[in-house]
Every structure is written in C-alpha cells, then in structure tokens.
C-alpha cells in the first residue's frame, strides 16, 4: 500500500519488563484514515498511541512509520526526528502533561518554535487555529486557570499548531460537557476532512461513529480482539460486552423494571 503511514507487526510492549501493556499487535494505518482505538481502561490504548508517536519502543516486533522502522537510533537522527515530529502530533489524555508552559500562548507556540517554523507562517497558522477553536480570550492565561474543556481545546491547539499529517488523540472527550464534547468532535472531523489521518483512543462509543470509519477493539489481554468497520463492530453486542464497552442498564418504566445491555451510542434525552 503506497499510502501506508504506520505498520505494526507482532508488537509487544511491557512496563518495567514485567507488566504487559500490548501483546502481539498487528496494524496497518493508511493516509487519511479515521480510526478509533476502543477498549476499556487499562487495555493499552494510550500505550499504543505513545508507540505510534515514537515516545516508547516495543520490546519485540516492529513499528514502521513513513516507511522507516521506529527506534531510538532513528529518532535521534535530527533530520528524521524533525520530519517525524512535524508529521505526527499526539494529544495526551491528561492536559496537565501537555500544557507545561506558563501561558496558553507559549504552549501553542512551543511546537512550531522547536520545529523551526517560519515566523510569518507560524503567526498565520496560530491565528487560524485560535479563531477556529475560539480560544482567543485564553491566550494570556495560565493553564491552571482553565476549565477541563478549555484545557482540552488548548491541548488540541498545541498539536494543530504543528499542522501534523497524523493526529493521535487520547480520550479527547473524556469528562467533558456535551457542548464542548461536540466542539471537539467537530474539530476532529474537520481535521480529517482536510486530509489528516486521525487516530482516536476512546471508550466513548457514542462519538465513535462520527470520528472513525475503522475501529480496533482492544481486549483485557492487551490484544486486538477485533478490527473492522465501525458500524459492524458496534452492532456486535457480544463483542462489546466481552470487552467492557457495554454494561447492563437497569431502569423503570411505569413501575416495570427493565434490564438490558446499554452501550452509550446514543444519549438518553
């Protein structure tokens, strides 16, 4: 496949060499795809995103990005590292990790400055992002003064400022109110419409159909339980229940108690 961006073969990764986080992962991701990584807490979603971003490396197996095998030696090459970092952007799950500068503005400028982007180009791009995310009033504020939703938007802005070809998002809508969540989803959809490859790790099933065409479901064994078109996977109730993506919902209608599986694909009104 000419358009292949990431190719993972038999990837195993463990923390401290004794706590497995990913086991035997095979995956091919092509340019422009919208992919969801689904799984319960602790199933290895965040670890996978960090592998794809070249922040950690597999114990065994291989991760290839843009036709080159990702390892420490390759990422120590200034030329490749610069190109890779400007092509792949990761939005971390915890905004307090991502926002490490004293002000929002400095955080947004951090990536472009490190990557040596032309000043005029950088200014124009940052202005566009600020307008699109509607965060102009936050620029001079310190990250600790922001709400969770604002932090999340700023995190996305810090990555979009690099204008990466691949956007990796770790639980982008976790803990957000519906309106902010909708805004974040629109940003993801818009980024993909502009040709970016978007890979989102989440367990919010109600957002998956909109932000992804293909999905990978991760099991408790840190393996890929199944992959395929989103619609097909979301209709497989047994699969979802087996991987903790669905729960038993108990409620009452006119004094009659109902018990049924519930998967949060659509919100109750």
């Amino acid at each position: 496949m000419d358009d292949l961006i990431f190719s993972l073969r038999a990837v195993n990764f463990s923390y401290l060499k004794k706590y497995p986080a990913l086991c035997g992962i095979d995956m091919d991701i092509a340019r422009g795809q919208k992919i969801a990584i689904l799984g319960a807490n602790g199933s290895g979603k965040s670890t996978l995103l960090q592998l794809l971003d070249g922040l950690i490396f597999p114990d065994s197996g291989s991760v290839e990005a843009f036709g080159r095998r990702l390892d420490e030696a390759v990422l120590n090459e200034a030329d490749f590292s610069g190109r890779f970092r400007s092509k792949v952007g990761l939005v971390f799950q915890n905004p307090d990790i991502q926002l490490f500068c004293p002000t929002v503005k400095e955080d947004i400028l951090f990536g472009p400055l490190q990557l040596g982007l032309d000043k005029a180009k950088m200014k124009k791009r940052v202005e566009e992002i600020i307008a699109s995310l509607r965060i102009s009033e936050l620029l001079e504020r310190a990250p600790h003064q922001l709400s969770v939703g604002e932090k999340r938007k700023v995190c996305i802005a810090t990555v979009l400022a690099i204008d990466p070809d691949v956007l990796l998002l770790d639980e982008p809508t976790a803990g957000l109110d519906p309106q902010t969540s909708r805004h974040i989803m629109d940003i993801i959809i818009e980024a993909n419409a502009k040709g970016k490859t978007v890979i989102t790790a989440t367990h919010d099933l109600h957002i998956v159909e909109e932000i992804a065409d293909q999905a990978y479901i991760f099991s408790h064994e840190k393996k890929i339980a199944r992959s395929g078109p989103v619609e097909e996977l979301l209709n497989d109730k047994e699969l979802l229940q087996a991987n903790n993506l669905m729960h038993i919902h108990k409620h009452r209608h006119k004094d009659v108690e109902h018990i049924h599986p519930h998967q949060h694909i659509e919100h109750h009104i």
Binding site: R85, N94, I97, I162
Partner: peptide, 24 residues
C-alpha cells in the same frame, strides 16, 4: 511521574534538548 510524562510531551512537540522560546 509527571516529570517523565512532561518530558514525553515536550519530545512529542519537537523538543531536542535546546529549547527555543518565543520573543514576544
């Protein structure tokens, strides 16, 4: 732990050990 994670976040956005700061 935060120290390690923040360093990863910096690397992810192109930090190479020589910081470039905005002169505003």
């Amino acid at each position: 732990k935060l120290n390690e994670d923040v360093y990863s976040a910096m690397l992810s956005r192109g930090y190479t050990g020589e910081p470039v700061l905005a002169d505003e």
